[in-house]
Design a protein around this nucleic acid. Structure first.
Lengths: 124, 124, 124, 124
DNA sequence: GTGGTCTAGACCACC
DNA sequence: GTGGTCTAGACCACG
């Protein structure tokens, strides 16, 4: 069962995108694997305090991307092959790294300063 | 005059928030200073290819935060004191650093791996 | 035993309503009479390829309307008196006739055109 | 401007389908023509007493079917060519005629009885 | 003012 | 219990 223990909703970003991102990060870390069971719409929406439809939208997009399988009346499962896992890893790491580098550069930090800053926050 | 040369609109995030973020990052980098002139709503909306109302919304929120001053019929100017600059720097760096550290940790990267990844992307 | 030989499920209308309508049309035609046996939930759900709960819902509404009687462990039977038969006939014919007349009028057909159209389709 | 004067919501059928049907019947009757203006989402939803999204869904499907054109910030217009008009006419008349003939036959009416019934209701 | 999207709650059919 | 759909209200960007 995929965990949403430490999931915290951020403001300003669509919740369904945050749910997708959470699962994809789990794929990258290896804690989410093919065949893993996904919490039901009702359970997860109650856990996160959002509407079941918001969860449904996230799951539907994951299904359209070919990462999940849903069948009416049955549990939803992750369905990942090697290519998909590799693609997700590449996309997620690329996206986050690019974003933070762009932000740091815009704020005038040197590479050394940026790395030092991130190293500092790592200990939190 | 505050520059929007390299400003690129991202999808999925409200544009007015991106405009605010751009200016705040300029404050952090020092390229935006107190007294600097802000492009007019009309000019900036044309430059970015968005609606003047969207720019208006960003400027209004910056005014409410006390970072900008607008007067009818006159140029808008940045109005920053030391405390505000310090606050903005702290908030922006804190936010971006926390986000990337959280993301990397969720994806199971070690500190060394994360720093190496970011270092790689810095050269782009 | 009430027949569901020619029953075909339409999309976009709740199935339990279609089941109720099928039985009521049988009442109008006289092929469904008081005392007639109703197929069991299990048999009918298998025949129509739908879930037993869906049939259960249709039967429960027919019971609440006083047209059917169910007893635990026994066959369900139609229970119709003259008033109910008359009411069902009136409601069903009235509803269908009104609907088609309204539709044809909205589509600008003259009475003669509408009657000719229906006459054509009758031969199908 | 397309009229929704005599539009009455029926229960048991999705409202957005009823809105689509209303417009298509207008196309059949010729009261809805290419280039005709469509009431805005807000105006129509208020008029019918439903949610703007329900109207939006109907309009979106009409757009996907190629019968309407919508542009953000601008009025929506009907966009019909001869082939589309012919197709809509055929589909709508066919559907309504088939439905009523099927219903009347299931209820055991003869062709003469059915025609007489409809003729009676025409005068309403 | 316009249309587009996100979030929310209720209902349907299925297992 | 499950997922799928319909209706509802608020917000965003646009003209």
């Amino acid at each position: 069962m995929i965990s949403f223990e430490e999931f915290i909703i951020e403001e300003g970003i669509p919740i369904y995108l945050q749910v997708i991102r959470h699962i994809k990060r789990g794929i990258v870390s290896g804690t989410v694997q093919s065949g893993d069971e996904v919490p039901s719409r009702r359970v997860l929406s109650a856990l996160l305090g959002v509407n079941p439809n918001t969860i449904q939208k996230a799951f539907r997009m994951l299904e359209e991307e070919g990462l999940m399988e849903s069948h009416a009346g049955a549990k939803s499962l992750m369905a990942l092959d090697e290519n998909q896992i590799a693609r997700v890893c590449r996309e997620m790491l690329d996206s986050d790294a690019k974003n933070v580098v762009s932000a740091m550069k815009q704020m005038g930090l040197s590479k050394a300063d940026a790395l030092a800053l991130i190293e500092t926050y790592w200990e939190d």
